[in-house]
Structure formats: C-alpha cells, structure tokens
Nucleic acid binder design. Structure first.
Lengths: 144, 144
DNA sequence: GGTGCAACCGGCATATTGCCGGATGCATCA
DNA sequence: TGATGCATCCGGCAATATGCCGGTTGCACC
C-alpha cells in the first residue's frame, strides 16, 4: 500500500485533468468497484500524493503583466505558503527549486497595482523570508 | 452577466482551493441557493474563467530535469545571448525581466550532467555576468 | 490450518445533482 | 404606464452519487 501502482497512476492522471469527476465514473474508467476506487483515492489523499483539488482559473480580465516571484522560505517545505499561493488565481505556476531560492512563482496580473498587492501578500506570509519580484518585459523564447 | 462580481470572485477563490466541494456547501458559504450557485459556476465554466478542475499532485515523474537559470547580463539587451540560448533545444522558455535579474531561462534536460554542461555554456557566454541555477524539485502548481 | 491483513465487492440509508416551473427585479419601448 | 424580454434567483422532485457497513478473497507468516 506504500507503493503507487499502475492503477494509482491512472487515477492520478484522470484526476489531474478532471478533479470533479464522480468516484463512480472514475471507478468505471479504471475497472474497479466504486468502493475500491474511493479507498484508493482516500489513501492517496492521506499519503499526501494528492494534496487537494483546485479549480483552474483562466484570466479574469486582460491579465497581461507577467512576473516571477523568487521566494526564499524560512523553513521548507511550507504547505501553508503553497496553499495560500494556490488561492490566488493570478498564480500560474509554482516550482519548488533547489539552491538558495525555494520557490519560483509565475504570476499573471492585470495591473501593476495588482502585482504590488500580490507581492505584499506573499511577502508578509509567515514563512516567507525573502521575495524578489521580476516583471517580464518580453517573452523571448517560448516552446510548447 | 459578462461581469465577474464579488460573488463570482468568492466562488473562484473557494473552488481554487477545494475544487471537489459539493455545490450545496459552496452555496451555503456564499449565501445563495444551490441552483443559483450552480448556475454561476456553470456560467464561469462556459465563459472559460474556470478552465477545469485539477488534482494537485505532490510528486514529480522521473525522467526529465527542469531548472531555472537566473541570468544577470553585463549589458542589456543582449541579442547574442538570446540567439545562443535559442540554439539549445533544452531551453524551453526565456523571459526578459526587470530588476536585478535580466533573464529567466527555463530549461528541461535529461540528466544533471546535461544541466551542468548547459550551465557552463551559458555562464561563459560573453555578456553573462552572473548565473544562478535552481533545479525544480517539484511542480507545486501548474495552470495551463 | 489458523491468524492477520490489504484490497476488493455489493447494498442500503443519506446526501447531492440535474432539471424543471415559477417568482422577482430591472431595463426597454410603444 | 403597462407590456415584453431577460438575467437571476428560489424550491421541489426524481435520478444519481456518496458514506458507511459487513462480507469475500488472496496472500504472507507462523
């Protein structure tokens, strides 16, 4: 049960695309009963493999300003910070990285004001030690 | 109805953290009936504001290593550096940013060795003043 | 062969959803 | 002013999904 087997991987790949799918439908797709499927999903949640379920929010308006927030934490890991980041619809991508930095956060906001607000919110989070903001001036290379 | 009002924003912020919450509970939290809440959510989905619902997976698949190269240039802009970066197939995205940094380069390589080679190549480019490498340990949030 | 255990299944009571008709507020316009 | 259209809201009912349970199976370990 410690292992993540092929069925678990199927579950994860389905849920990472359609998190609100009923357990019954999920069960049908992977060929298990509903109760076995529910047990597996519950186990994955408890084990921390599934951290939660998020709505994927598109841009609210003309989200044209993109920026990188380079975050150094006081302690790692910090689930609290990640959860709060996930709550901002302007947060597009968060990567935990090695080295001096801890998190690279890519954001997309509608205005400099919004960016400043977001920056402040993140900077004042408990576990955030340091925060550098870099606004994207130009996208030079972008490959699928 | 084209507008996204305060209630919609509340809905989005709740769903971006608990995407599997029953509509009935969501309705209770925002103080509307279930049917009105469902209508709003459906509208947000159709409008593309909600792009989907994703399970937040806490582990990374093996195989490719992703990293950020945070580049400071001696002079900006530097077409030469951009051209040479574009020549590496492992370079996925390059952003010119404001502030202390100049470029944020996202790369994807097959091994630590490949990353080190790439790092060396970039670090020794003429116009590169400073280079910080941060390996992505985990992708915490990713929205299309 | 007995015991413990993880994983599976189905069933029943309860909770949630999909879908409907109908009320309300509001702008438009003859 | 009163009729019309429309967006938004509400509650109700049947269909569906969930939570929770007991029971079965396969397997490792004495």
């Amino acid at each position: 049960m410690q292992d993540i087997d092929a069925i678990d991987r199927t579950i994860l790949s389905i849920l990472s695309q359609e998190a609100r799918i009923p357990m019954k439908s999920l069960a049908g797709r992977i060929g298990l009963s509903r109760s076995a499927t529910t047990e597996r999903v519950t186990r994955l949640e408890k084990a921390g493999v599934i951290r939660g379920y998020r709505a994927d929010i598109g841009q609210l308006e003309e989200g044209t300003i993109q920026a990188f927030l380079l975050v150094t934490l006081k302690r790692t890991p910090s689930i609290g910070v990640l959860d709060r980041l996930a709550g901002f619809s302007s947060v597009r991508k968060v990567s935990s990285v090695s080295g001096q930095l801890d998190l690279v956060v890519e954001v997309e906001v509608g205005s400099i004001n919004a960016l400043n607000e977001l920056r402040n919110e993140v900077a004042t989070m408990d576990n955030v030690e340091d925060l550098t903001t870099s606004i994207v001036l130009r996208r030079d290379i972008e490959r699928s």
